[in-house]
Amino acid sequence: MRAGRGAYPWTTGVAGTLLVSVLAGCSPGGQEEAVTVGLITKQEENPYWVEMREVAQETADDLDVELLTATGTSDTDVASQEAALDDMVEQGVDGILLAPTDAAALEGAIARAQEAGVRVIAVDTPTDPPELVQATFATDNERAGELIGRYAAAKVEELGLDPQVATLDLTPGVSTGEQRRAGFLSGFGAEEGDEAVVASVDTEGDRDNAAVAMTQVLTDHPDVNVVYTVNEPAALGALAALQDAGADLDEIVLVSVDGGCAAMREGVRPGLIDATAMQYPQNMAREGVRAIARAVREGQEPTGYLDTGTLLVSDAPVEGVESRRVEFGVRTCWGS
């Protein structure tokens, strides 16, 4: 009569123990020391800075760190950053991630923060001199330029072109742009003043400025077949001008630096921009928050320079130059 009514307390006990042991792996750890991190970006018009803030927030949430954020109104808004630095020190942050608009003008505020025992890490843009801050987490801009320079040289060879190079640069005196340009020339196998470089125009990295500049370059040098752009907005501006002029894009090599999602989808994926060297604001933010949390909780102070990575992405790879597929670029690009 007891058939079908087996009693099995011990069996449930054994399996229950197994289940509990698996789930125990999911339980949260103990209370960690409180950490507050400040992030000061240049502006929020550019998705680059939005991405940096979002990743900083995600990382802070993961590490149970409080994040305070502030931003300026433009790439040259020093006053807002200075006020934000002082304000964050007042609020007792343990460390600040700062993307300095003008390191010289911010030197006083940075010094006040350090005197108050607050760590300052420069992100994206190094200070001059770098020793103004404890550490710098930024793209190796020269390396980024070199990658696209090497690509452009190999592509020129593949297409059998006689190179006529135009460079659409940033602004004189801004290290980021100067390093990228120097890297490009080095990777391309050219030097400053090389006769292959037929035109160089400052665009401030602005799309409209670049379009105007490219139109002028095409008027002055219609045989231009290699275009270096300091960033992707400039590349998209140059592209618009080339298309308006009816240029044969199959015979023109257009390269850039950045890794933004818009240019990746509209420019690199359809092969309009031949290659771009990606930079990763995500890594600057993630590593920055981690570094300050580690300093407070484990006593490992951040120092020196951390290269936050740069990789070449192209829809048309060339032999002898390592590059990643566009799908990788779309997955790891910044912005929406």
Partner: peptide
Amino acid sequence: RPYVFIASVLVLIWLLIAFRKMH
């Protein structure tokens, strides 16, 4: 983790079925 979780549930079911007489 989820696979070990599923395996643990399967072990539990195995034990409950194995030691039960069924007609």
